[in-house]
């Protein structure tokens, strides 16, 4: 099937006083209609930036410095602001990481939903208000009819997050870019929201880019998953493969750091060291200062995505020409 969204070799830069920072470099992936692509990775790796580039809301001075973004085969990375604004909301719905930045504190939750519904679906006020209440019920806001006239600050963190989700869904977009949509939700409401999103993908063919740190949500919702590290994709493949049998040493370290639910441990596993700053990305593989498998080639050459089994990993261990190969364990999981 032709992909709904295609991101090709995307590069995002931030000009600063101290030189140009490259926040995203050579990011490529696609999402088919009805498919959910999960995006995980180190905090600061560029997940939100990728989402912002797709919906045309990179914060200046950030800019797309290379590559293309295509929606339904048409480029959207070079559209004017007003053209992009029409696509946003109607064709691409965005759920931002920080609910407060999406919600206007001066308007009630209902006014904001009604406004979006009227703009994009052309319904009249009374009908739009009915829909707005319906959406609040669907995302699990209790007594929605009574609370629709509340202001955002009168809602709890998780309730605000659900309002943001309702806002992104209410214009029935084809693609949803969801950045950490469930972090403030308890497991029960989370299950309800996930079921809602999965239902949209299944029944209406809605595609989704789902950024989250919650591996449980990924395991349950995503079809494929991309692991990002320092502005690049480290590994991408079917969700089960990547979560259960990660190939890239960073993915492996990440999966090993998931806190166990069935017992208490003294010291939680973590990947030692920190992600490099954008201004000091090491030569060769960006993960090399922290990688337990590092070898000579990693220090000089930057790996591109290499096919390995069902997934692709940006790691020299999977290149037959390298002097070192993946240990058995890593190749087969």
């Amino acid at each position: 099937m032709a992909p709904l969204l295609e991101v090709r070799d995307l590069r995002v830069e931030f000009p600063t006083r101290r030189g140009i920072l490259t926040a995203l470099d050579g990011v490529s992936f696609s999402i088919a209609p009805g498919e959910v692509l999960g995006v995980v990775g180190e905090s600061g790796a560029g997940k939100s930036m990728t989402g912002a580039a797709i919906i045309g809301l990179l914060e200046p001075p950030g800019r797309i410095a290379g590559g293309q973004i295509l929606l339904n085969g048409k480029r959207i990375d070079n559209l004017r602001y007003d053209q992009m604004r029409r696509i946003r909301g109607r064709e691409i719905g965005a759920i931002f990481q920080d609910p407060l930045t999406t919600l206007n504190p001066l308007y009630t939750v209902g006014e904001q939903l009604v406004e979006t519904i009227r703009t994009h679906l052309g319904l009249d006020g009374a009908e739009a208000r009915k829909r707005a209440i319906g959406w609040l019920e669907m995302v699990g806001i209790p007594a929605a009819a009574q609370r629709v006239d509340s202001y955002p600050h009168e809602f709890s963190g998780g309730m605000r997050q659900r309002v943001v989700i309702a806002l992104a869904l209410c214009a029935e977009p084809k693609l949803i870019v969801a950045d950490e949509p469930t972090t403030a939700l308890d497991v029960s409401i989370q299950a309800q929201v996930i079921a809602l999103l999965k239902g949209l993908a299944r029944d209406k063919g809605t595609s989704m880019m789902l950024v989250t740190h919650d591996m449980g949500v990924i395991a349950e919702t995503a079809d494929r998953v991309a692991v990002m590290y320092a502005g690049r994709i480290a590994e991408i493949g079917p969700v089960r493969e990547v979560v259960k049998h990660p190939k890239h040493p960073y993915s492996a370290g990440l999966m090993a750091s998931i806190p166990p639910l069935d017992r208490k441990v003294e010291h939680l596993a973590q990947i030692d060291g920190a992600m490099p700053r954008l201004s000091a990305i090491p030569r060769g593989c960006a993960f090399n200062p922290r990688c337990p498998e590092v070898f000579a080639r990693c220090l000089v050459e930057r790996p591109a995505l290499l096919a390995t089994g069902a997934t692709e990993a940006a790691c020299w261990l999977y290149d037959a020409a390298s002097e070192k190969h993946a240990p058995e364990a890593m190749r087969h999981g």
């Binding site: 209790p142 009574q146 609370r147 497991v187 029960s188 299950a191 349950e220």
Partner: peptide, 22 residues
């Protein structure tokens, strides 16, 4: 209602019924 990391296909059971209003 805890999500299933093991991907056993188990359906999560959200707490049933309406969330009451405070």
């Amino acid at each position: 209602a805890i999500p299933d990391l093991e991907m056993t296909g188990r359906q999560r059971i959200p707490v049933g019924g309406e969330v009451p209003s405070p």
